[in-house]
Nucleic acid binder design. Structure first.
Length: 768
DNA sequence: GAGCACTGC
């Protein structure tokens, strides 16, 4: 995997921002208040620390600072490596010293001396992500073989920041500074400062419940409130009670800092100035009927009336974005000579990386000498709100909507719905206009609705998700009492009940709610609980190799099938390119066929690129599935689970696989009632997704996913036999606890049949 | 016949 990132170029200095210190600091805390344990941590046995003993400076660190980690002297040696500093080190050091966060260093250490948790607020660009972990390292937190962790919600960030910090410390990436993300561990025994994704630290906590490897943990981007960050925060609160030596820095954008302080029992707050340039906010005078239409009009008006500068438009999804791009381009083309050339670019997650990269290119030059300069118009999803930062944007158009995940515990369905954004989100979007110079943000809603209608902050993910995996993780972490677990925002009791119920049916928790050995095994796998259960049981059905591939394919988010465009369809004369892979008995088997075919081609010289292209397959998705499969296979071996296959020629090949899948997915089954399908127990009316290649309208189908759009669909389906249900999951298909309907009648019949079969031969005869 | 905000292990 490449280390380069559009977000980050290690060869370029960070932009120098405001250098003045924020006046909003709390009064200085009494120094050396606490003599136990914490002192030891701050004192370096080598006396190398700037903050050791009584030499804690009250003034700002200056060039005369004795800190060997920050020496400006040309003859100085790098205390990490013992080697002389490189030229580049001094160049970077000059830039570092101008970062706003640099001035907060002494204050941060003062706070950490008296408190175990400190909240630090400052926007991206203040330098907190790169500097704060270094401050801790310089203060001696790495002594005695201890490490410092800094979490990030995203992999690219963990990677690129580690790369930058290694350059700043003048060490090789992977030596003293490293990162750890899924599929890639760039750390060594020497690593003192470790950047990792929040999910990765959670994984580590499952092995090392008290996180004993770390002396300090920095939670970055805590305001994003990812599932993993929320779980980590709750976990750390507990760990702190048992480890008074542990220090935690919670870093957040300048939103909600109070909430973090309250949650961590009045932790002190440090503020670092952030915002670079002012952004003018312009509201719509009246509510807009059609926000896409209004957005297109606004963009066109900016291009015709406003001075040069790139435009960023926030929409909700691929379809809207492609439509808007087309319309904006059409409308502006006739005016290019008058207003300058415009490049209109889409930006959303499922776009291939090379097309995403285009938003970072320079805007087009004037059409003719002395003509008006060109600009970029970027139509983006929420990806541009957090994940990708595009410099040069001066105008932001905010429709006020985004797609958000919602979980309905009553029907156990997660769905994506277009929703109004929060005020925090609107502020974040507006901020994207002020990164290089003063900007403007056009909000396509009224000022009144901004203040009265929008909620303060987006509901954290933990309130909008199915918590099956979270509960399994917490149980593995040794948390028995989930109801009283200290969540920053406690999920609905019903959501927790659903998760406990799911894990109980799967066999991960016993009836007392305690983790079983099967559940312990399940938690080893980075999969949905249903997939983990199916995978662990698959050796019993002689098909773990196959189920391994299927769960890898299903869990690697991206759809490997590329949709054909209309004109391609005409050229193909009707034969859909994916038909060759289709299995009439189940889409899971289709996925297996695709993967096998891909692997065959991948072995050949020249790889599978052309073949994927010709067959409308997404090579990146298949490669990811391959990586996931490798990781899962390693875990299987580590757990002593057999890797076995049924002969492809055997009549049991397909049924074994489908039975194995059912052993984890028995709660995802629909029954045919006349022409339509109904999910079992919940009795939701669903249709087979049109992409399904399954044929013959079987009475019972297992499905991977319930998709709720205009209609309710079940996607990735496989035929199962009714008798398997009563054989494999009688605890779930228990008629005394089953809502009425056609499925129940059918099950009753199957149970009677099963009972008869199990009677000895002579009794059965007598019974007749 | 129809769809995919965004992450992460």
């Amino acid at each position: 995997m490449s280390n380069s990132s559009p977000l980050f170029d290690a060869s370029r200095p960070f932009p120098a921002l405001q250098t003045s210190f924020s006046p909003t600091l709390p009064p200085l805390l009494p120094r050396a208040m606490d003599e136990n344990g914490k002192r030891r941590r701050l004192d370096s046995p080598h006396g190398s620390s700037l903050y050791s003993g009584d030499r804690v400076p009250r003034r700002r660190a200056t060039d005369a600072s004795p800190n060997p980690y920050l020496s400006h002297r040309r003859d100085a040696h790098n205390p990490w490596t013992g080697r002389p500093y490189s030229e580049a080190y001094y160049d970077i050091l000059r830039v570092r010293r101008k970062l706003p966060v640099y001035d907060a260093r002494a204050r941060l250490m003062e706070c950490l001396r008296a408190h175990n948790v400190v909240v630090l607020e400052g926007q991206t660009g203040s330098g907190k992500t790169t500097q704060v972990p270094q401050f801790l390292a310089e203060a001696g937190f790495c002594d005695g073989g201890m490490r410092i962790a800094c979490t990030q919600p995203r992999r690219v960030a963990a990677m690129s920041v580690a790369k930058r910090v290694a350059a700043e410390m003048d060490v090789r990436l992977g030596d003293h500074v490293g990162y750890s993300i899924r599929f890639e561990d760039r750390t060594s025994r020497e690593t003192k400062l470790k950047y990792l994704t929040d999910g990765m630290l959670l994984r580590e906590a499952m092995k090392d419940n008290l996180l004993k490897a770390y002396s300090a943990i920095v939670l970055d981007e805590a305001h994003e409130r990812t599932l993993s960050t929320d779980v980590l925060m709750g976990l750390l609160k507990g760990v702190l009670k048992k480890r008074p030596d542990l220090k935690v820095v919670v870093m957040s954008a300048t939103l909600d800092a109070q909430k973090f302080q309250d949650y961590f029992d009045g932790a002190p707050l440090l503020s670092v100035p952030g915002r670079v340039f002012p952004v003018d906010i312009i509201y719509s005078p009246q509510p807009e009927d059609d926000y896409v239409d209004a957005a297109i009009r606004t963009v066109i008006s900016i291009c015709r009336n406003e001075p040069t500068g790139d435009v960023l438009l926030f929409l909700t999804g691929e379809e809207e974005i492609e439509e808007s791009c087309r319309k904006i381009e059409e409308e502006l083309r006739p005016f290019e000579r008058a207003y300058g050339p415009v490049v209109v670019l889409p930006l959303y997650g499922s776009l291939p990386p090379d097309r995403q990269q285009k938003v970072f290119a320079d805007p087009p030059p004037p059409l003719y000498h002395g003509g008006p300069p060109g600009r970029k118009v970027i139509c983006a999803t929420n990806i541009a709100e957090t994940s990708l930062t595009i410099d040069g944007v001066v105008y932001v158009v905010d429709t006020g909507f985004s797609k958000q995940k919602i979980y309905n515990p009553r029907v156990r369905v997660e769905s994506l719905l277009v929703q109004e954004i929060s005020r925090a989100s609107a502020k974040q979007r507006a901020g994207r206009a002020g990164r290089t110079r003063p900007g403007k943000c056009f909000r396509l809603y009224t000022e009144e609705s901004f203040h009265k209608h929008l909620i303060e902050t987006t509901h954290p993910e933990i309130l909008r998700s199915n918590l099956g995996n979270v509960v399994l993780q917490l149980k593995t972490l040794g948390i028995d009492d989930l109801v009283h677990f200290d969540f920053m925002d406690p999920p609905a009791p019903e959501t927790l009940m659903r998760a406990l119920e799911l894990l109980n049916y799967l066999g991960a928790l016993d009836d007392e709610g305690d983790l079983t050995s099967f559940g312990k095994l399940m938690s080893e796998f980075p999969l949905q609980p249903e997939s983990s259960a199916a995978l662990i049981r698959s050796p019993q059905f002689q098909c773990s190799n196959e189920v391994l591939t299927i769960v890898a394919m299903v869990s690697s988010a991206q759809n490997c099938f590329v949709r054909q465009k209309k004109k391609d369809k005409n050229a193909m004369r009707g034969r859909p390119p994916h038909e060759q892979f289709m299995d009439a008995e189940g889409d899971h088997l289709t996925l297996l066929n695709v993967f096998h075919a891909y692997k065959e081609k991948d072995k050949e010289r020249g790889g599978a690129s052309q073949w994927c292209w010709d067959n409308y397959l997404n090579q990146r998705a298949l490669r990811t599935a391959g990586n996931v499969r490798t990781q899962l296979e390693r875990t299987m071996r580590g757990c002593n689970l057999a890797l076995v296959s049924t002969d492809y020629q055997s009549i049991h090949y397909s049924s074994n696989i489908r039975r194995a899948l059912l052993s984890g997915y028995f709660m995802h089954v629909a029954h045919r009632n006349g022409k339509e399908y109904q999910t079992v127990k919940d009795n939701q009316k669903v249709k087979l997704h049109p992409s399904s290649g399954m044929r013959g309208n079987p009475a019972w189908v297992l499905y991977n996913e319930f998709v709720f759009t205009k209609t309710q669909y079940i996607r990735t389906c496989a035929k199962v036999e009714g008798k398997w249900l009563v054989e494999q999951a009688p605890h779930y298909y228990d008629l005394s606890n089953f809502p009425g309907g056609s499925a129940k009648e059918e099950l009753r019949r199957l149970y009677r049949k099963k009972a008869k079969r199990s009677l000895p031969e002579n009794e059965r005869r007598r019974g007749r």
